[in-house]
Amino acid sequence: MSEFLTHFNYIAVVIIMMTGLFIVFSSGNLIKRMIGLALFQSSAALFYISLAKVTGGTAPITLEAASEAGRALAAEQVPGYVAQHGIDGVVYSNPLPHVLILTAIVVGVATLAVGLAIAVRVREAYGTVEADEINAVSRIDAAGLQAEHAP
């Protein structure tokens, strides 16, 4: 297979990653930025899971039913493949990145909740969630301070 196909997953992941980053840094709307952030975080998940996939592999669950299906899958490969990479005749995908990404997804939703909560408070304090307008008001705040305390 060509270099492109064997690394297709990474390329797709990078595009999504960059889309997410672009949204985060180009958008002025706080909610939209949180959405971009979620997209960006999800690209990390796609990346890890791509690393974990094994050709002809099955989910890392060693139950009988899963194993039968796994044997069928593994049997489709060239001879010797299973003997070399399998465990008890079944090839499994790598469980470790799955675990890590479970954690990362939960962290992602936690961040999303806190970020949106802050955005809601920003809206209540400033009447807007657009970064430009918030900055303008903040500058007035700072200037107002100056005036208030000037001798």
């Binding site: 690393l51 094994v54 592999g57 070399q84 990479h85």
Partner: peptide, 15 residues
Amino acid sequence: SLGLPEFGDPSSPAN
């Protein structure tokens, strides 16, 4: 990413 192992490679360090 071209330095990463091929997709689906069972003998990559990760797997």
